[in-house]
Design a protein around this nucleic acid. Structure first.
Lengths: 124, 124
DNA sequence: GCGTTACACAACCAAACGGTTGACTACACC
DNA sequence: GGTGTAGTCAACCGTTTGGTTGTGTAACGC
């Protein structure tokens, strides 16, 4: 894993336990102990997971006596959504263009329309 | 990493080289050799990366003689977008509700309105 | 002050990851 | 059939990951 922001975010969400933690934090803030309760791993392991989410910028922790309430920072999702949408759109546009070309190829060239676009050129 | 679909997709995109490959495939199909060319790693390493993208359902490979052209399957992005949007929306809704509560707290209780919501109750 | 609670830090371990080299398969071209 | 090209498979290696246990520490309740 590289240490750039996007890599950290994707990598953080690649683990189902961490995705579950994010899902639960979306419903409301929670302490480390509360978050650890449903899983049959140690609190330390969950603490590590939270640290990774924190490093990725997905979670922030505050202080309340000896408790460390965790809070979801949903803004970071934008980073992913932007990346995903960019390439999805690009790929879909390309797909549409390809479709158009295939349609062009399907239609026999109409003589005398003066488009100057013979089939061979479209296929190149 | 678990082997469920979403984990595989996030995990596949956690690597910058693989994200780059996806970005390039968004611009058009390419062979393994073409994809490997810009990086200073072996073709085998890139072949492995493509395999991981394929396992995640992000890429499909066809056959053209001894070449194996790679094609981006942008549909899988939906899986991620849905997951992300769901919890983003949940978190934002919660944030809005919290905002409303804080506004309630800011406003001094108007006597005689009959709302029956003293400040202490809202703070509990 | 003393025990308890809620966590973090450090060291360790097995498994997975990203990379390598070397050998192999599949096809095209002469 | 022999050679070159495109790519995969297999074994290996160092590093990272997700987990453990054990210890340390800050704050509360008595």
């Amino acid at each position: 894993m590289s240490d750039d922001r996007l890599s950290r975010v994707f990598s953080a969400l690649a683990d189902p336990t961490r995705r579950d933690i994010v899902a639960r934090l979306a419903a409301g803030d929670a302490t480390v102990g509360e978050l650890a309760e449903p899983y049959d791993v140690t609190v330390q392991a969950v603490s590590k997971h939270i640290r990774i989410l924190e490093d990725a910028g997905l979670v922030s922790r505050s202080r309340d006596a000896q408790r460390r309430p965790c809070h979801l920072r949903a803004e970071v999702f934008d980073l992913m959504t932007k990346w995903i949408e960019r390439y999805r759109r690009e790929a879909e546009d390309r797909f549409r263009r390809l479709d158009a070309v295939l349609e062009q190829l399907d239609e026999p060239p109409v003589p005398g329309t003066g488009t100057g676009t013979p089939t061979e050129e479209a296929a190149s």
